[in-house]
Protein backbone atom coordinates (compact mmCIF):
# COMPACT_ATOMS: atom_id res chain seq x y z
CA UNK A 1 0.00 0.00 0.00
CA UNK A 2 2.59 2.52 1.12
CA UNK A 3 6.31 2.14 1.39
CA UNK A 4 9.04 4.45 2.64
CA UNK A 5 12.65 3.70 1.81
CA UNK A 6 15.50 5.47 3.57
CA UNK A 7 13.35 8.51 4.19
CA UNK A 8 15.25 11.52 5.51
CA UNK A 9 14.16 15.01 6.47
CA UNK A 10 16.60 17.70 7.50
CA UNK A 11 15.04 21.07 8.26
CA UNK A 12 17.26 23.94 7.27
CA UNK A 13 15.82 27.11 8.68
CA UNK A 14 18.44 29.75 9.37
CA UNK A 15 21.19 28.38 11.62
CA UNK A 16 21.92 24.72 12.22
CA UNK A 17 20.31 21.95 10.19
CA UNK A 18 17.78 19.93 12.20
CA UNK A 19 17.69 16.24 11.26
CA UNK A 20 14.05 15.35 12.05
CA UNK A 21 13.79 11.99 10.26
CA UNK A 22 16.97 10.02 9.79
CA UNK A 23 16.54 7.13 7.42
CA UNK A 24 13.19 5.47 7.96
CA UNK A 25 12.07 2.31 6.19
CA UNK A 26 8.46 1.28 6.51
CA UNK A 27 6.08 -0.95 4.59
CA UNK A 28 2.35 -0.84 5.29
CA UNK A 29 0.20 -3.52 3.69
CA UNK A 30 -3.32 -2.84 2.40
CA UNK A 31 -5.81 -2.98 5.25
CA UNK A 32 -3.15 -2.69 7.92
CA UNK A 33 -3.45 -0.32 10.88
CA UNK A 34 -0.08 1.00 12.04
CA UNK A 35 0.32 3.22 15.09
CA UNK A 36 3.37 5.46 15.35
CA UNK A 37 4.51 6.38 18.83
CA UNK A 38 7.48 8.18 20.31
CA UNK A 39 8.45 11.14 22.44
CA UNK A 40 7.72 14.68 21.40
CA UNK A 41 10.25 15.85 18.82
CA UNK A 42 11.09 12.33 17.63
CA UNK A 43 9.93 13.12 14.08
CA UNK A 44 6.44 11.57 14.02
CA UNK A 45 4.64 14.54 12.48
CA UNK A 46 7.38 15.17 9.96
CA UNK A 47 7.26 11.53 8.93
CA UNK A 48 3.49 11.28 8.32
CA UNK A 49 3.46 14.66 6.60
CA UNK A 50 6.07 13.34 4.19
CA UNK A 51 4.00 10.20 3.60
CA UNK A 52 1.10 12.44 2.58
CA UNK A 53 3.24 14.72 0.45
CA UNK A 54 2.60 17.63 2.80
CA UNK A 55 6.27 18.05 3.55
CA UNK A 56 9.10 17.53 1.08
CA UNK A 57 11.68 14.86 1.79
CA UNK A 58 15.40 15.56 1.90
CA UNK A 59 16.17 12.12 0.51
CA UNK A 60 14.65 8.66 0.22
CA UNK A 61 11.66 7.26 -1.62
CA UNK A 62 7.91 7.02 -1.08
CA UNK A 63 5.82 4.52 -2.99
CA UNK A 64 2.04 4.58 -2.94
CA UNK A 65 0.06 1.77 -4.55
CA UNK A 66 3.13 0.66 -6.46
CA UNK A 67 3.84 4.11 -7.89
CA UNK A 68 6.70 6.38 -6.97
CA UNK A 69 5.27 9.43 -5.20
CA UNK A 70 8.18 11.35 -3.70
CA UNK A 71 9.17 12.74 -7.09
CA UNK A 72 5.73 14.26 -7.71
CA UNK A 73 5.25 18.01 -7.94
CA UNK A 74 3.06 19.77 -5.41
CA UNK A 75 0.09 19.63 -7.78
CA UNK A 76 0.82 15.98 -8.54
CA UNK A 77 0.63 15.27 -4.81
CA UNK A 78 -2.60 17.25 -4.55
CA UNK A 79 -4.22 15.05 -7.18
CA UNK A 80 -2.90 11.89 -5.53
CA UNK A 81 -4.24 12.95 -2.12
CA UNK A 82 -7.62 13.78 -3.58
CA UNK A 83 -7.82 10.31 -5.06
CA UNK A 84 -6.24 8.19 -2.41
CA UNK A 85 -5.23 9.81 0.86
CA UNK A 86 -7.20 11.24 3.77
CA UNK A 87 -5.19 13.31 6.25
CA UNK A 88 -6.13 14.33 9.79
CA UNK A 89 -3.93 17.17 11.00
CA UNK A 90 -2.97 17.64 14.61
CA UNK A 91 -4.48 21.14 14.46
CA UNK A 92 -7.49 20.33 12.25
CA UNK A 93 -6.88 22.77 9.32
CA UNK A 94 -10.60 23.18 8.64
CA UNK A 95 -11.76 25.81 6.17
CA UNK A 96 -13.01 28.51 8.53
CA UNK A 97 -15.49 30.26 6.24
CA UNK A 98 -17.33 27.08 5.29
CA UNK A 99 -19.86 25.14 7.35
CA UNK A 100 -18.96 21.86 8.98
CA UNK A 101 -21.10 20.06 6.40
CA UNK A 102 -19.31 21.73 3.49
CA UNK A 103 -15.91 21.02 5.03
CA UNK A 104 -16.73 17.33 5.09
CA UNK A 105 -18.40 17.18 1.67
CA UNK A 106 -15.73 19.13 -0.16
CA UNK A 107 -13.12 16.39 -0.54
CA UNK A 108 -15.75 13.95 -1.80
CA UNK A 109 -16.97 16.48 -4.36
CA UNK A 110 -13.41 17.26 -5.43
CA UNK A 111 -12.82 13.54 -5.73
CA UNK A 112 -15.69 13.32 -8.20
CA UNK A 113 -18.54 12.04 -6.03
CA UNK A 114 -22.11 13.13 -6.88
CA UNK A 115 -23.59 15.81 -4.57
CA UNK A 116 -26.12 13.27 -3.32
CA UNK A 117 -23.45 10.72 -2.51
CA UNK A 118 -21.25 13.36 -0.87
CA UNK A 119 -24.15 14.46 1.31
CA UNK A 120 -25.07 10.94 2.35
CA UNK A 121 -21.49 10.15 3.25
CA UNK A 122 -21.22 13.38 5.25
CA UNK A 123 -24.44 12.65 7.14
CA UNK A 124 -23.23 9.16 7.97
CA UNK A 125 -19.80 10.30 9.21
CA UNK A 126 -21.08 13.21 11.28
CA UNK A 127 -23.67 10.96 12.90
CA UNK A 128 -21.03 8.34 13.74
CA UNK A 129 -19.00 11.02 15.48
CA UNK A 130 -21.95 12.52 17.34
CA UNK A 131 -21.87 15.74 15.31
CA UNK A 132 -25.12 15.65 13.32
CA UNK A 133 -26.37 18.70 15.23
CA UNK A 134 -23.33 20.75 14.26
CA UNK A 135 -23.55 20.35 10.49
CA UNK A 136 -24.49 23.96 9.74
CA UNK A 137 -22.09 25.52 12.27
CA UNK A 138 -18.86 27.23 11.31
CA UNK A 139 -15.67 25.54 12.57
CA UNK A 140 -14.94 28.56 14.77
CA UNK A 141 -18.10 27.89 16.76
CA UNK A 142 -16.92 24.40 17.67
CA UNK A 143 -14.79 23.21 20.57
CA UNK A 144 -11.35 21.81 19.82
CA UNK A 145 -12.64 18.28 20.29
CA UNK A 146 -15.50 18.85 17.86
CA UNK A 147 -13.19 20.36 15.26
CA UNK A 148 -10.91 17.37 15.61
CA UNK A 149 -13.81 15.01 14.88
CA UNK A 150 -14.88 17.08 11.90
CA UNK A 151 -11.32 16.80 10.61
CA UNK A 152 -11.57 13.02 10.87
CA UNK A 153 -14.93 13.00 9.08
CA UNK A 154 -13.44 15.12 6.32
CA UNK A 155 -10.46 12.79 5.93
CA UNK A 156 -12.80 9.80 5.57
CA UNK A 157 -15.31 11.54 3.28
CA UNK A 158 -13.67 10.28 0.16
CA UNK A 159 -13.25 6.71 1.38
CA UNK A 160 -9.52 7.10 0.80
CA UNK A 161 -7.28 4.10 0.23
CA UNK A 162 -4.98 5.41 2.95
CA UNK A 163 -5.86 7.32 6.10
CA UNK A 164 -2.99 9.30 7.65
CA UNK A 165 -3.60 10.94 11.01
CA UNK A 166 -1.43 13.00 13.33
CA UNK A 167 -2.64 12.65 16.94
CA UNK A 168 -6.33 12.60 16.01
CA UNK A 169 -7.45 12.29 19.63
CA UNK A 170 -4.99 14.80 21.07
CA UNK A 171 -7.75 17.28 21.87
CA UNK A 172 -10.51 14.90 22.91
CA UNK A 173 -11.88 13.93 26.29
CA UNK A 174 -12.40 10.27 26.99
CA UNK A 175 -15.99 10.10 25.74
CA UNK A 176 -15.18 11.77 22.43
CA UNK A 177 -12.10 9.60 22.14
CA UNK A 178 -14.42 6.61 22.40
CA UNK A 179 -16.48 7.83 19.41
CA UNK A 180 -13.32 8.27 17.36
CA UNK A 181 -12.04 4.84 18.42
CA UNK A 182 -15.30 3.22 17.41
CA UNK A 183 -15.25 4.82 13.97
CA UNK A 184 -11.59 3.96 13.43
CA UNK A 185 -12.29 0.37 14.44
CA UNK A 186 -15.23 0.20 12.09
CA UNK A 187 -13.45 1.56 9.01
CA UNK A 188 -10.44 -0.61 9.80
CA UNK A 189 -12.64 -3.70 9.87
CA UNK A 190 -14.01 -2.60 6.50
CA UNK A 191 -10.47 -2.70 5.14
CA UNK A 192 -9.26 0.86 5.66
CA UNK A 193 -5.47 1.18 5.72
CA UNK A 194 -4.44 3.49 8.57
CA UNK A 195 -1.17 5.07 9.61
CA UNK A 196 -1.70 7.08 12.74
CA UNK A 197 0.51 9.00 15.16
CA UNK A 198 -0.66 8.84 18.75
CA UNK A 199 0.29 9.13 22.40
CA UNK A 200 -2.98 7.59 23.45
CA UNK A 201 -2.54 3.99 24.53
CA UNK A 202 -6.18 3.20 23.78
CA UNK A 203 -5.81 4.36 20.20
CA UNK A 204 -2.47 2.61 19.73
CA UNK A 205 -3.81 -0.62 21.21
CA UNK A 206 -6.28 -0.90 18.33
CA UNK A 207 -3.48 -1.05 15.77
CA UNK A 208 -2.13 -4.22 14.24
CA UNK A 209 1.41 -2.95 14.64
CA UNK A 210 3.25 -0.30 16.63
CA UNK A 211 6.22 1.57 15.24
CA UNK A 212 8.27 3.53 17.77
CA UNK A 213 10.36 6.49 16.73
CA UNK A 214 13.22 7.94 18.72
CA UNK A 215 15.40 10.76 17.41
CA UNK A 216 14.08 10.35 13.89
CA UNK A 217 14.72 6.63 13.67
CA UNK A 218 12.60 3.53 14.10
CA UNK A 219 13.62 1.70 17.27
CA UNK A 220 10.79 -0.82 17.32
CA UNK A 221 8.35 -2.20 14.78
CA UNK A 222 6.23 -5.16 15.88
CA UNK A 223 2.67 -6.38 16.24
CA UNK A 224 0.70 -6.07 19.48
CA UNK A 225 0.21 -9.53 20.95
CA UNK A 226 -3.10 -10.78 22.28
CA UNK A 227 -3.20 -11.56 25.94
CA UNK A 228 -4.15 -15.08 26.90
CA UNK A 229 -6.95 -14.32 29.25
CA UNK A 230 -9.19 -16.37 31.45
CA UNK A 231 -12.60 -16.46 29.81
CA UNK A 232 -15.38 -14.47 31.42
CA UNK A 233 -13.01 -12.10 33.20
CA UNK A 234 -14.60 -9.15 34.97
CA UNK A 235 -13.60 -5.83 36.43
CA UNK A 236 -12.78 -7.72 39.62
CA UNK A 237 -9.68 -9.08 37.88
CA UNK A 238 -8.05 -5.69 37.53
CA UNK A 239 -8.60 -4.05 40.86
CA UNK A 240 -7.04 -4.28 44.20
CA UNK A 241 -9.13 -2.14 46.48
CA UNK A 242 -7.55 -1.56 49.82
CA UNK A 243 -8.96 -0.32 53.08
Amino acid sequence: MIRAIGLVKIYQTGGLPVPAVRGVDLVVEPGEFVAIMGPSGSGKSTFVHMLGGLETRTSGEIWLDGKRADTLSESGWAVLRRQKVGFVFQFFNLVTNMTVADNVELPALLGGASPKHARERREYLLAELGLEERASAAPGQLSGGEQQRVALARALANQPRLLLADEPTGNLDSRNTRDVLKLLGKVHRQGQTIVLVTHDARVASMADRVVSLLDGQIVDDAPIARIQRRPGGTAGDIVELRG
Partner: peptide, 15 residues
Protein backbone atom coordinates in the same frame (compact mmCIF):
# COMPACT_ATOMS: atom_id res chain seq x y z
CA UNK B 1 7.33 -3.48 27.81
CA UNK B 2 5.58 -0.92 25.60
CA UNK B 3 4.01 -3.64 23.52
CA UNK B 4 2.98 -5.45 26.68
CA UNK B 5 1.25 -2.33 28.03
CA UNK B 6 -0.59 -1.94 24.74
CA UNK B 7 -1.75 -5.56 24.93
CA UNK B 8 -3.03 -4.87 28.43
CA UNK B 9 -4.83 -1.79 27.16
CA UNK B 10 -6.50 -3.76 24.42
CA UNK B 11 -7.56 -6.27 27.03
CA UNK B 12 -9.06 -3.51 29.18
CA UNK B 13 -10.89 -2.12 26.18
CA UNK B 14 -12.46 -5.49 25.53
CA UNK B 15 -13.35 -5.78 29.19
Amino acid sequence: QRRHYLSLMRDLDEL
